Computed example of a mutant assay.
Amino acid sequence: MSPRRIFIVAVVTALSLVTACSGGGASSTGAALPSGPELVKRAAEAMRTVKSAAFSMETEGTPPVQVKKADGRLSETGDGDGTIQVDVLGNLQEISFVLIGDTVHFKGVTGGFQKMSRSQLAAIYDPSVILNPDRGVVQLLTNALDPKAEAEEKLDGADAYRVSATLSQQVLSTMVPGLGQDVTGKLWIDKATSRLLKADLPLTDGKVLVTFRDYDVPVQVTAPAE
């Protein structure tokens, strides 16, 4: 498989997962939780204003995805950078990527950066959908089915609400090409800001975990040296 094909597969899978609630129980203090629909509505409204974010993705078990790990930064314009570990015929290969304007830079562990156009990548998948309020995470939250508030708990030091929800295949498929079914997962929503902190997405034979951090920290992406 060529480096360009490996990169396309990696970005399509990893950035797509970058992605991804009625009535509640009780918080750790015993107080009633906000309703699930209220929490995902707040989260959708909060994510609509996000200008940038850092993300991490990792897998547990052997879910049917080629990307096993990813870390990166993304702006609302779709510019970003990071690394992806992709399974190619049983071997893990690491790909570095830099997305700037109309140009996509990518490289493997050895060799230099190669280029493709944004339009070539967008013909398969457009990473900007993740923070695009009309297509990405905002729509995923807006269209979450049967959301249920489960608990209030700490997540990496932050107070968060844990919410279960069925995420619509119709919406997810715009970010996860080829997905053929709804996914019932868990979402952690920051109590203070209502932003999405984590998504736990069970799939066949495993799961995908996606976390978000560094919201609205300026993302300055620099083209790699030729």
Rank of each mutant, 00 (worst) to 15 (best):
N132A: 05
F7K: 09
G180E: 00
I124W: 15
R118P: 07
V9D: 14
L99A: 08
G178H: 06
P64L: 00
T13P: 12
A144T: 01
F106D: 04
W188G: 03
R162S: 10
R48F: 13
V109R: 15
R4E: 15
V9S: 14
F55R: 00
D102K: 10
V129G: 05
V50M: 04
S164Q: 06
S16W: 10
Q114D: 07
A54P: 00
D71I: 11
A43S: 13
G136I: 01
A44Y: 05
E45A: 15
R73T: 09
V171K: 05
G157I: 02
G108N: 08
P34E: 08
L17W: 11
G136D: 03
A10H: 00
G180H: 01
V11K: 02
D190Q: 06
K198N: 01
A26N: 13
L39T: 01
R4K: 15
D216M: 10
S119K: 11
G178C: 01
V163M: 00
P127G: 10
L15R: 04
A223S: 07
L17E: 13
D146Q: 14
P218Y: 09
P37Y: 08
Q139T: 10
G185D: 03
L74I: 11
G80S: 09
D200M: 10
M57W: 07
R48V: 09
V65E: 07
V176C: 06
V67N: 07
E60K: 13
M57T: 09
A26Q: 14
L141K: 00
A43R: 02
D71W: 12
I130V: 15
T211I: 10
L17A: 15
N132W: 06
P177Y: 01
G72M: 00
G206D: 05
D71G: 12
E76W: 13
A31P: 11
V98Y: 04
T193A: 00
K186G: 14
A14S: 03
F113Q: 02
L167D: 03
T184S: 10
R42Q: 13
V171F: 01
A158L: 11
S2N: 09
V163N: 02
K68E: 13
D134T: 15
Q93P: 14
V219R: 01
V210H: 06
I189F: 02
K51S: 14
P127D: 08
G36Y: 00
L172T: 06
Q66H: 13
K41E: 15
S56Q: 11
A151V: 12
D81M: 09
Y161T: 05
A223G: 01
L187F: 05
F97D: 02
R213V: 12
A20L: 10
L92W: 11
V138D: 07
S194R: 08
A20V: 06
G25M: 07
V163H: 04
D159N: 12
V65R: 08
G61D: 03
V208L: 07
G80D: 01
C21Y: 11
G78C: 04
A14E: 06
E76S: 15
V163R: 05
T49Y: 14
A160Q: 05
G90P: 04
R213Y: 12
D87I: 02
P34R: 02
R73K: 14
S16I: 11
Y125N: 04
K115S: 06
T77I: 06
F7T: 10
D87Y: 07
P127S: 07
